[in-house]
Write a protein that binds this DNA or RNA. Structure first.
Lengths: 325, 325
DNA sequence: GGAAGTTCTGCAACCGGTTGCATGAAACAT
DNA sequence: ATGTTTCATGCAACCGGTTGCAGAACTTCC
């Protein structure tokens, strides 16, 4: 069995409270005693039990990270960054996948609540009301969704869409389609709002569509029917699917139609043509979310929700080119 | 503040122990009392505190999952499956990324130990000795590494390599290259052992190589110099890189050279040509690992390590074709 | 009608820490 | 020499549960 604080106390002839303080408030104990205790603790392989500590302090030093789908290539970099960032601050993180199911999401949050100091919700599927309700029990930071009264991390896809369209305009494109995402998506709405606000282009909005490779593939005919020279897709998976669909129909990318995606997921760098895309700051989002969350945790009841908007940028690769003559 | 067991006890006029039993040993309490307690608990929004429970029972109902790199596309499906499987058994899982650093790995295991009932180590970078040492403190299951005396989940890449080569032979290929992975890799060794044991082919082993897209790209010249008609790569990333490198040199895949990868990661399904590959049962590995781990946890000290070997299979797509005339 | 079981509930100690308060000793001020 | 601080440590209650033991109430059996 692992050594406990009492084993250390016995072995070093001091009271358990002294051992406790040696670890959690070292300045309160005589350097001499402290060193002796530390030496013996080291010797016994003692490590404080975080769960036990949490019981009295109310701080578990754990975070929860809830995502809709771990294997969606968009999330792993975020998870990785969040986890690494948390570790530097001496926090461990529970990662849970809801499988896009709001019910699972809710249950997960509820069972996790007691074990964590805060929860990171990425692209939640739960209703606003449900989230607000759950937010009473545990601090939240929401990523990729606007929620009043909650700390939020957003990625500026509106500006990303603008950058993409400007890039297309520079290449001479004027008739541009926006391949929209799922109906309720905040991201999708941001993109179309931004696109609609741009002057000098003729915009067709196609969709809603399923945000998958298949969704893009299925939209190929609609794109052709729209008679455009360039397409901005809701995400890279759709863009990849679209390129594939166009290819099947003998339409060259970017020869006849230019395609821009959003996300900058790994596969986009590996397909041919390599995808021009709006890069989402996923790592930064993970780190920022952890920062906001710990800030919230530290502030206790007095916490004020913060909003972080992170910049996106355009990565120009090979799926965009000059408008054909 | 969230309701505790004492709040429920007070509100329902019974002793805390009765409330406790209502949740952890329902058959010991009178159905009438039980229902009353349950109703009041529900009313108060009471949920047992797992950390507190762990203190007395010694079971945290948490698992640790340690991987070298979350954003390596190979891992997310495994993480997802493991997490989902664990959830069904009422376990939460800490996910930690070591960034390929053995030191971080060790530290992570040590700090996690007290908070989990067991740890899943995926493709560990730690020395065998270190792992065995740490294994004294907490049950382990190791994925993708052979370790005596420890529960292990392996994927049968040897047979995968055989299947791939047989497929190539059916297509008429005889001069085949194996693009090896990193020097110390168990997987790489399994593959080359299997390939060497096959009759009727002329095998060139090229490498070791970095197991990345870049590693594959950089190997293009070596492949051409080897004068082969087909290549089996250590993993999909390398295969994709190789296809790219060959393309740059005007060599058609599969027209002049066929390429087979290993892993079946998402990008391989999206590149063109779509990659023929040996699918690794990553989801099954995640589930199996959790099963073995919980088995170990349940057995306590008397646990006997188990070894699971999972079958791989070949997925034929577009990067392999008949040997050119 | 009393002994022997059952079934249910309460009591209290315990898990591994933390922390407010009390105490004793040493250091300083007067 | 005395009073006042400061410093280091011990004491004991507490965090939110679990569990062995004991006893009360109720059955069952002879």
């Amino acid at each position: 069995m692992a050594a406990t604080i009492r084993d250390v106390a016995r072995a070093s002839g001091v009271h358990v409270s002294t051992v406790s303080r040696t670890f959690s408030a070292p300045h309160l104990v005589n350097p001499e005693t402290r060193n002796r205790v530390l030496a013996i603790a080291e010797d016994l392989g003692y490590r404080p039990n975080r769960a036990a500590r949490a019981l009295t302090t109310g701080r578990t030093h754990n975070l929860g990270l809830i995502v809709a789908d771990i294997s969606n290539p968009f999330f792993p970099p975020l998870i990785k960054a969040a986890q690494a960032h948390a570790r530097l601050r001496d926090y461990h993180v529970f990662v849970a996948d809801t499988d896009e199911d709001p019910q699972v999401e809710e249950e997960l949050i509820q069972t996790l609540t007691k074990q964590v100091d805060g929860v990171l919700l990425c692209s939640p599927r739960l209703s606003n009301r449900a989230i607000e309700k759950l937010g009473e029990d545990v601090p939240f930071v929401v990523v990729n969704r606007r929620l009043k009264g909650m700390s939020t991390v957003l990625m500026d896809v509106g500006n990303g869409a603008r950058l993409a369209i400007e890039h297309l305009m520079t290449l001479g494109h004027r008739r541009i389609a926006l391949l929209a995402g799922p109906a309720g998506s905040w991201t999708s709405r941001e993109m179309s709002d931004a696109a609609r606000a741009m002057d000098g282009i003729e915009l067709s909005i196609l969709g809603p569509n399923s945000p998958t490779e298949h969704g893009g593939l299925a939209a190929a005919d609609a794109v052709l029917a729209a008679d455009v020279t360039a397409v901005l897709a809701y995400n890279d998976l759709m863009a990849i699917g679209l390129v594939e669909g166009l290819d099947e129909r003998g339409v060259e990318v970017p020869g006849r139609i230019s395609v821009v995606g959003v996300d900058d997921i790994v596969p986009g760098r590996l397909t041919r043509p390599k995808l021009t895309t709006v890069a989402m700051p996923t790592e930064a989002a993970g780190r920022t979310a952890v920062d906001l969350l710990l800030q919230l945790v530290g502030a206790g009841e007095t916490a004020t929700p913060a909003l972080a908007t992170l910049a996106t940028h355009l990565i120009i690769r090979d799926s965009t080119g000059p408008v054909p003559p």
